[in-house]
Amino acid sequence: MAAPPGWPYSPDGRFWWDGAAWQPVQAAPPGGPGQPGLAVPPPPGAQAQPGLAVPPPPGPQAAQPYAAGRQAWTPAHHPAGPPGSGASVPVPPGPDAPRRRGTAVFALVTAGVLIAALALGGVAGAAVGLATTEPVTDDRAPSFPGRFPSEKQRYLPKVTVNMVAGNWLQAANAWRCARSTATDPVTGATMNTICRPGDASRMSVSIWHDGPDKVLSVKARCDLGVGSKACTSLFAMMADTLLSPDPTLRAQAESWAKKNAVKAAVTSVGGVRLETAVRPHTMEAVRAI
């Protein structure tokens, strides 16, 4: 049944307050006079609510359900709430449904906006990236690892031509030395200094170098017989001379040369690779790597 004039309706218009309890609103007969086409009469405040700018209908009963929103349905206002609340103090069932719909719509719109933002941002960023970046066509060469072979490693460490030819052979042993420009096919050196004793040509020391302090190899040859004192001494003195910048290593090198002068052997001492051979009887020193 419809509420008598002056009694409040619930927000959804399905119940009206008879002063003691919520009563369902009966549908009016179709085509009835006064409200054609309306199955459920709107609550008194319905006209005011959508715009929220029109004051509620006069009278505390009409204003209460709407003026304070959900707080209007507290027991303090209506001890017995409308049916359907399931609580000891029922609340009107109407207001939650449209709010849930509104929340769902808001969530959908929000998700759409965020997805659109992601997609548009990605596309825009990619477009800018493609438009502003040029292909790398002339990069710098990567740096070299620490043990990458370099020119500095070509030369015997701290060995000079004067140390071998001048101090050891010419000054101390009166050998004669001659320099020539020739390329060593093995080491690639561009100059050669060869020294021989003044009284015999059966021993020699050949120095391959690129400059006075750029010695690539030193090779001693002795044709006085394997095991001869002169050959062993020559090899030992050569090892001693080449390692002379390091007192510890020079003794080690000299000792090795004495021990291995009569056979083919190889060792590496202080960055110097020493190799002895029997035929021909030689000892050669090159940079070790």
Partner: peptide, 16 residues
């Protein structure tokens, strides 16, 4: 939008 733009820029720039 900005994050996606930065990501898209980085990927496209690297590819390019």
């Amino acid at each position: 939008f900005l994050l996606a733009g930065a990501g898209g820029f980085a990927v496209a720039s690297g590819y390019r």
